[in-house]
């Protein structure tokens, strides 16, 4: 697969490490959320046949974490964003 890196352009997916569902960005606050919320965060995933937002790490590149929107059936990639931007857009900060 080819991932169109927002900064570096098309790069072979072989350079990346796959992590999984981009909801891993939505980590609850450990001082407020309880075991239930963390259990949900750590274990529960959708497994869609179709569009999926997922985290890829450009390990053999610029070390950016990316959110890649990929169709799991066709492998078509429709969007690639810097995970840091996605996290900030979700209100994550410090």
């Amino acid at each position: 697969m080819i991932i169109h890196h927002p900064i570096l352009g098309p790069r072979d997916a072989q350079e990346f490490v796959y992590l999984g569902d981009a909801t891993l960005i939505d980590r609850p606050d450990g001082m407020n959320a309880g075991t239930e919320a963390f259990h949900d965060y750590a274990y529960n995933r959708d497994n869609p046949a179709g569009e999926h937002r997922e985290l890829w790490y450009h390990e053999q590149g610029d070390r950016s974490w990316l959110v890649v929107t990929r169709n799991t059936v066709t492998h078509e990639i429709t969007k690639v964003e810097l995970a840091r931007d996605v996290a900030r857009a979700k209100g994550r900060s410090k």
Binding site: L8, Q14, E15, Q60, G61, D62
Partner: peptide
Amino acid sequence: DGYATRTM
């Protein structure tokens, strides 16, 4: 020329 990249 001047291109720099990390690569395997």
